[in-house]
Nucleic acid binder design. Sequence first.
DNA 1: GACTGAGTAAACACTT
DNA 2: CAAGTGTTTACTCAGT
Length: 353
Amino acid sequence: MAPMRGERGGSPARGARASLPLPRRLIRQIARHVASSGRSLRRLEVSGRVIDNFDDIDDGSDESDVDTSQPAVACGGNAGNLPPADHDDDLTSLSWLQDRNLLRGINLTKADMEDTKMISSQVIVKTESKTPPPTSRIPSPPRTPCKTPPSPPAVNTHTKPPYSFSCLIFMAIEAAPARALPVKEIYAWIIRHFPYFKHAPQGWKNSVRHNLSLNKCFHKVAAAPGLGKGSLWTVDPQHRSTLLQAFGRQPVPPAEAEPESERNAPDPQLFPYLARRLADARAPPGADEYLAAATVLAMKYGPAVLDQLPPEAHLVISRCARDEHSYSGGEERRTAEALLNLAGVSAHAHAPS
DNA sequence: GACTGAGTAAACACTT
DNA sequence: CAAGTGTTTACTCAGT
């Protein structure tokens, strides 16, 4: 597993803006988080304010809230100036997820939570990546030790994706606004996001149908009028966590030094789509939203990221699966909210305006 | 070696 | 009738 090395240093420190809608420390951590996954953070909207010049929040050497244990990182608004970590210990992208508490890891205060409105559609992840995401260097958490070194999906378009058909179907259905798709749309989603299947032998469609029929996680629902042949397929809510766990167990091939465009990772455009769905919810976030947030995380950073979540997050996810989502204050609620935030969706986006 | 999960192929029935 | 969809069975393979 190739270590993640930064190719450039951070940009020079500049005068920070007078006021940012949330602590620079947090913005830096978000930027650093995205940056160290080998991608670029180019634009972020917080509380309605667009931050597109991360030079402004760079450095932090003059910031009181700077965590001096971490080197400054500039997530430039311009493409390609993303400074991948050159500090193995400090810039492991998800290292702060290792903390016992997600919130403690990113040092989110309650006020941070309330001020933070991050819609993932506004967190643009560049498609070009200089370095593979760094999950490979994240030590496995005590709860679910990862036997295979976690690394992002990095498979050539012409090789088979590292996901089982059930996971592919799961992702396809999850990405749908109605969380239900006819089999034809599932084919289309898979082809769109995993071009390998464009030219793969036709047998894979049979496998998809076979999987839909055989896998208890998928349910057929009444076809919508005018749908034509076939039915809509949905994910059984009771088996959602099973799929998520299966997703997290997917074997991940070693990262290769390939252009991202040739990799077989899901299209990043998928995430804003899911995020919008989450954000559109009128009611306060519930089990579905938290599980969807976990799904977004897994899709964003690779399935191994689920193994990097602290026990609290798994507790939330498992409780969601059992429909026990009573986050009456305390760690669990904050962890649940942090799941949404990590996925790029503020819990407050759900609140009725 | 048994078991399990996943992938593949094939046959068949049904629907549009 | 053709094509697509859904179900089922059987087999192989890899991992445990």
